[in-house]
Design a binder for these strands. Structure first.
Length: 287
DNA sequence: AAACCGTGGCC
DNA sequence: TGGCCAAGGTT
């Protein structure tokens, strides 16, 4: 018995879905996988141009695995969270070595790849291969928090989020994939975080939050740390310098950074992550 | 399991 | 202006 929510989402999605590259028929599991890496905590509009350049350069996992990690980190450009570039390269090597160069379909096999967690594994299995799994991202969690639980905002991510989504899925694989995508889409364009567009929401008259008068609920989400002046900002500056220069003497890397200790901390943590390497007193991207 | 990890746009 | 937010994952 399909949920009422699914029954509303399916026709709405057929009508309103955005035309995004990874939704094109035949986009392929590798394309979907790369898109999901890039979309982790990064807005759609910033991903699209970089995704297309990436897939043009590396049309298969094996092609990426044949290049040095440095190339992946450089191609990642300013997408942010550059560890994702390194992890995507590692995943490509793992796919080549453990799966004959074919992106796995099995959720547990996907979860075993570097940089892939609960969301990305199920997104690939569902959207690239059409299998039936609950796919839960931040948009879906917000839609469920409001429409099902009557809360203004979701709590911190939890494993029971998967059960909440499972309860909304129709039986058939294809319909289940559509409902997963539709819940994400609704959260992305209608049931947005700050000012939800309830006037155009297909769930308006069955939404628990709306029916309870849109109560304010305690916001249990953790606040994001300030970026200005942070170690992350220093790491970003170091990496940008090395992306642009290839290799630099260690003292020359952001040599004018105001906080000397912070600069050294950034370099050490980047070395520790494998995002940079040291050789003969110079730093460079990982070969 | 709480903290950490980039970057840019928006109001 | 500055805090919020963005298709998360790892340790």
């Amino acid at each position: 018995m399909p949920s009422e929510i699914a029954a509303r989402l399916i026709p709405w999605y057929a009508r309103e879905q955005r035309d995004l590259p990874w939704r094109a028929p035949g986009f392929g599991a590798w394309g979907v996988l790369v898109s999901e890496f890039m979309l982790q905590q990064t807005p759609v509009n910033r991903v699209i141009p970089l995704l297309e350049a990436w897939l043009e350069r590396w049309p298969t996992p094996t092609a990426l695995a044949a290049d040095a990690p440095a190339e992946a980190v450089r191609q990642w450009a300013n997408l942010g969270y550059p560890r994702r570039a390194l992890w995507l390269h590692r995943a490509a090597v793992e796919i080549r070595d453990r799966h004959d160069g074919v992106v796995p379909r099995d959720v547990d096999a996907l979860l075993a790849l570097t940089g892939i967690g609960d969301y990305t594994a199920r997104a690939v299995a569902t959207f690239a291969y059409g299998d039936r799994h609950p796919v839960v991202d931040t948009n879906t969690r917000r839609v469920i928090a409001r429409a099902v639980h009557g809360r203004a905002q979701p709590g911190p991510p939890h494993r029971r989020d998967l059960d909440d989504m499972e309860a909304l899925l129709p039986e058939g694989d294809d319909a289940a994939a559509i409902v997963n995508a539709a819940a994400m889409e609704l959260g992305a364009v209608v049931c947005v975080a700050r000012t939800p567009r309830c006037d155009v929401c297909p769930l308006l008259d069955i939404c628990a939050w709306v029916s309870e008068g849109r109560p304010e609920t305690p916001d249990l989400r953790r606040r994001q740390a300030k970026y200005e002046g942070s170690d992350r900002q220093a790491r970003g500056a170091v990496l940008r310098a090395l992306r642009e220069s290839g290799s630099l003497p260690q003292q020359a890397v952001i040599g004018d950074w105001p906080d000397r200790l912070q600069r050294d901390r950034a370099i050490l943590s980047l070395l520790d992550d494998g995002l940079i390497e040291a050789e003969d007193g110079a730093l460079h991207l990982p070969r």
